[in-house]
Amino acid sequence: MYRFLLTPRWLGIFALTLVAATVMVLLGNWQLSRYRERSAINERIDAADRVAPAPLADVLPTAGGSAGVAGPAPEKDAAWTRVTVTGRYDDTNTIVVRGRTVDSRVGFEVVTPLLLADGSAVLVDHGWVPPPPGSATAQPELPAIPTGQVTVVGRVHLSESKPGVVDRRDGRLETRRIALPRLAGELPYPIYGAYLLLDEQTPAADPTFAAVPIQHENNWQNAGYVIQWWLFALMTLYGFGWLARREALGDNKSKTDDRTPRSRDRAAEPA
């Protein structure tokens, strides 16, 4: 009944079906890995609020060895870890990062190098400030940056991938991206390969700074794609079986119809 499946035509259809189903399963597996990766990020974000901050040197690789060099980027699982470090701010090299959005408002993030005892620095993102009235591009009046020794608690943020252009305007460095390898070339000391989003600080930070929100990853979107691709794979295999069954029933009906007239002819012949 299903001998037709061994014909070249049906063998070709079967091969294409297997290839399509395999690709869909692999796509589902990839989405599953993305779901697990994003879930792990969300778990780290939530867990950081429940544990004491770790010393900076225990989490991030050592800063670059010479001036103008960024240290190696940490592993991805270091992102959002809470760390603490003590140093003094170098306000002369404060970086204004334009085009940053908080609560649907476009403004600036303010990043300052924190100089450490060994001569290296880690960049600290103090938070977000609005643009000056009447202009979305003019540099804002920045809140005061503490002088003297400060202790910072912040969350590790990986370097942004796009390098962007770094300018010096009105005596301040200005950029669109916090890309550490690019920013390191503008600074007179080595810096760490990740920066910190400020959580708290001693002495306290100026309340004008708005905290940069940490967004949870949309891992459930990836979970939906996993189910979607695997269902597509099952539907592809089911579709092949349905077509084969339909073909088999059609052939069987055709053979039955071919036999029926001959039987009637024989019955009509005289004895």
Rank of each mutant, 00 (worst) to 15 (best):
F4Y: 10
L5K: 05
T7C: 05
W10M: 11
L11H: 08
I13M: 13
A21T: 01
T22Y: 01
V23T: 05
L26Q: 06
Q31H: 13
Y35D: 01
I41M: 07
R44W: 09
V51I: 14
A52G: 08
A52K: 12
D58H: 04
V59C: 11
T62K: 10
T62V: 10
A63G: 08
A70N: 06
A70C: 07
A73E: 15
T81I: 09
V83C: 09
V83N: 08
T84K: 13
R88F: 12
Y89V: 06
Y89H: 13
D90V: 09
V97R: 03
V97F: 08
G99H: 07
R100W: 00
V106Q: 06
F108T: 02
F108Y: 11
L114G: 12
L115R: 14
L116N: 07
D118Q: 04
H126A: 02
P133C: 03
G134C: 11
E141G: 10
P143L: 03
P143V: 03
G148E: 13
Q149P: 08
V153D: 09
R155L: 01
V156R: 00
K162D: 09
K162S: 12
G164Q: 05
D167H: 14
R168N: 13
R172H: 15
L173F: 14
A179D: 11
P181Y: 03
L187K: 03
I191N: 10
I191K: 07
G193H: 07
G193N: 10
G193L: 03
L196H: 04
D199M: 10
E200T: 15
P203N: 07
A204F: 02
F209T: 02
V212M: 13
Q215M: 12
W220R: 13
N222D: 14
N222P: 00
I227D: 00
L231D: 03
A233N: 04
T236Y: 05
Y238G: 14
G241F: 05
G241H: 08
L243I: 12
R245N: 14
E247Y: 08
G250F: 07
G250D: 14
D251F: 07
N252S: 15
S254R: 15
D258A: 15
D258E: 14
P261E: 07
P261G: 04
R262I: 03
E269R: 14
A271M: 02
